[in-house]
Design a binder for these strands. Structure first.
Lengths: 130, 130
DNA sequence: CAGGATCCTCTATGATACTG
DNA sequence: CAGTATCATAGAGGATCCTG
């Protein structure tokens, strides 16, 4: 989130700085489908393309393929092709992906603990002017 | 991330389920500017609109306003107007916002600890086919 | 089965100009 | 100062058809 030191008062938060690790991470897990894929694989361990497609409601083929490619490129999961007929492709989290899964679980815990409060705040905010 | 029980094998990950707390949270912090605003306020404690605009490089007025409005609606920060001339507006994290800041810091820690590994994975992936 | 290639549609975001 | 309003655009993402 910063560029130089950790949380110096003068730190700048440059979202355009591609070298900012936090920025890159948010680009990854902030993605609509990426986190769903990671969690799905975290639960099932290993899944075929069609299993992922079935499990994650609403993904288009294009988005699913694009997402798993991106995650594979990031080293978060492995893609294993079994050259049978028809071909079979399995996806599985790497140790790196598993460690990210833990982080995502923290997010989930915060969400489950506090989103009700957020919802209340929204309702109150919306009641003011309408 | 789930709909019914915690991580039952049959859990579905429906990104279209608006009631999924994790989904909503990711929509919030996955936002390009929201997390930057939260971290900035976490560092500085309280900031004026113009201070935020100066601190967060690259935000347009429109996006900054839209972001703080959204965060205010979510109960993550407060907006305080001082009716002087010219008017002065301060933003400050709520306790709820501060607790989310902690979660974001976890993300940051993961990023700083592992993004180098991600970068290496990307380089290797890109070297294969080009 | 697992995707690649296309086309097409929105939405997010930016630039600019104006105001209480 | 701290916005609001408007216009314009790139890119995300969906639908569909095709193939090794």
């Amino acid at each position: 989130m910063d560029v130089t030191t950790d949380d110096a008062p003068t730190a700048r938060f440059d979202a355009f700085d591609a070298s900012c690790p936090s920025r890159q991470l948010l680009d990854t897990i902030g993605n609509k489908w990426a986190s769903l894929v990671i969690v799905a694989l975290g639960v099932a361990g290993r899944m075929r393309y069609s299993e992922l497609a079935g499990r994650i409601a609403g993904v288009s083929q294009k988005m699913l393929t694009q997402t798993v490619r991106s995650l594979e490129r990031d080293g978060l999961l492995t893609r294993t092709v079994t050259p049978s007929v028809p071909v079979r492709v399995d996806y599985e989290l790497t140790p790196l992906g598993l460690s990210l899964l833990e982080t995502i679980r923290h997010l989930k815990e915060w969400a489950e603990a506090h989103m009700a409060e957020v919802d209340r705040a929204r309702e109150e905010y919306d009641r003011k002017d309408t």
